[in-house]
């Protein structure tokens, strides 16, 4: 058997049994139950149907979990083996370092893919059978296609974490680095983008007579925000999802102003494109995700394969 497969098989078996995997699955179940309880309320205020909301909530939960799973499986990929002393036993055999990296990545990818697809189809089944939702087949297929890109997205986080585990002697350090990366990408950057957007857009016009100016203001903020975040994995995945599922843009806000308060609502969902068209339109976003994968894998490869193991 190919050595990459042997390592992948070991990685898969170990990951599935690991505590951190069980914790991430636990977080997912908790999140889903929380969202489910809010679903009927959300359907009253949203333009989307209950079925679409259910599907999108499920997919956005899976997106969040996929990034966490990537981090959880990647941060100790190499440093963990180094700490246990098992890396020495593996490397004392006719196994090349790139086989170790490839095997580990393949194993983790299999775990994430299995988790994503099984959760997705369980959720669809639960929605249809348990809540009598009439989710149409086209949407189920589109959702499944989105999962492939979520897998690519989670690979970005896995490979970033694996890189941190290559350069760190201790898993605790690589875990901190990986979490910092995750927090920056998912929380800090969107916040910074919003702050920069509002700062650059200038003061917001106030008053009922300035509705159009206010709409322009928010559009400007959104544009700045979107350009700042255009390179993040999350923004690119959202864009792919928008093309495939026809979900509204997180930046495409609509402003409603009354005498006393200003509120924003999302516009009606855009029509979903045909699947081939959606993929063509997402080519650049897919490319960005691939660039991330290549860069992080390349960095791991450079440091690990160059035998830069130091005392």
């Amino acid at each position: 058997m190919n050595r990459i497969w042997i390592i992948a098989e070991r990685e898969f078996a170990d990951s599935i049994r690991s505590k951190r995997f069980i914790v991430v699955v636990g977080i997912f179940i908790l999140m889903f139950m929380l969202n489910l309880s809010m679903l009927s309320f959300a359907s009253q205020v949203s333009e989307l149907s209950l079925e679409d909301l259910f599907l999108q909530t499920s997919i956005s939960n899976l997106t969040f979990i996929a990034s966490l799973l990537g981090i959880a499986l990647g941060f100790s990929a190499i440093s963990g083996e180094r700490e246990k002393g098992t890396l020495l036993l593996i490397l004392s055999r006719p196994v090349s370092r790139d086989q170790v990296l490839n095997g580990k990545t393949l194993g983790a990818l299999a775990v994430i893919a299995l988790s994503l697809f099984s959760s997705y189809f369980i959720l669809i089944g639960l929605g249809m059978a348990g809540f009598n939702l009439a989710i149409d087949l086209d949407k189920v297929v589109r959702g499944a296609l989105v999962l492939i890109f979520i897998l690519l997205y989670s690979l970005v986080f896995y490979l970033a974490s694996m890189f941190f585990s290559v350069i760190s002697r201790r898993s605790s350090r690589s875990m901190v680095l990986a979490l910092v990366f995750w927090i920056i990408m998912i929380i800090i950057l969107p916040l910074i983008a919003f702050i920069v957007g509002t700062a650059l857009a200038g003061p917001m016009p106030i008053g009922e007579e300035n509705i159009e100016a206010q709409m322009e203001y928010w559009q400007k903020v959104s544009q700045i925000q979107a350009s700042i975040l255009s390179f993040t994995p999350d923004t690119n995945l959202q864009s792919i999802m928008r093309n495939l599922l026809g979900t509204p843009s997180p930046y495409g806000v609509e402003v409603q102003v009354s005498v006393n308060e200003t509120t924003t609502t999302t516009p009606p969902p855009p029509e979903a494109k045909s699947i081939p068209q959606a993929i063509i339109d997402s080519a650049l976003n897919i490319l960005v995700l691939i660039v991330y994968v290549v860069v992080f894998y390349g960095l791991s490869y450079m440091f690990f394969v160059a035998r830069k193991e130091e005392k």
Binding site: D14, R17, T86, L88, L89, S92
Partner: peptide, 9 residues
């Protein structure tokens, strides 16, 4: 090797 280890589980 010195400092080797096994998969404990």
């Amino acid at each position: 090797p010195e400092g080797f280890g096994f998969y404990e589980h």
